[in-house]
Design a protein around this nucleic acid. Sequence first.
DNA 1: AGTCATGTTGACGA
DNA 2: CTCGTCAACATGAC
Length: 244
Amino acid sequence: MPEGPTIKFLAQKLQKFVGEKVTEASGYGEMDKSKIDNIKLENIETFGKNLIFLFKDFFVTAHFGLFGSMKINERKKVNASFALHFTNDEINFYVTRTKLYEGKPQDYFNFKTDILKPEFDQKLILETLQNKFSKKMIGDVLMDQSIFTGVGNIIRVEVLYRSKIHPESIVEKIPVKKLKELIKITAYYAEEFLILMTNDCVKKDAIVYAKKVCPIHKTDLEIEKMGKVKRTTYWCKKCQKLYN
DNA sequence: AGTCATGTTGACGA
DNA sequence: CTCGTCAACATGAC
């Protein structure tokens, strides 16, 4: 269900709970929930595909994996893996993995890599690509959460098409100008994705993801589980140049 | 009904 | 030790 923008969308929906008192937490997940006991929810934010609930001295991350979902004041038939209870409300999470951390998110996460944060640092991303990922295929690197935090398969496929870069291109062979363009387009498309979320148009408005034909050339798209990520990748070999 | 998926982790063996 | 492979995940859309 989630890529970074999906999680940010959920975080926005939950803002009304900020400042409220959490009476208790429940769920079959293994995380120790004893500290969440009549405590104020200080803030809700995100890091990539993690939803973050901040309390005074600690915080909890919630990750949806592939099947995760969330309901506000509604329950599904199956038990929740995690739930936050308020005096009159509850937030239920299904198939969601949670983890509790002491301290602040900034102690653990570098917001400069998060494609949806104002702190997203395009120059840092370019340097990291050149220094640590130069021999790798760009289609693989885009899915790496340590450098493109929040990118999922839809974003990966769409930004490669929009940048006209073949997914199997090797990072060091791609002209710097093209790499910069790719990074910029990734941040831009992440914002677009978030807007499309509100109208449920992400898949409908995707250009190549889960499509069959390139809209420019009217020719069949390549559809393959490429690289190490082995995720279904859609590309047009006429539009997207292979640098290798 | 079978298949496939917006994701990650941990087990296992080479 | 490190890498590839595979399953698992109270799932859900087509």
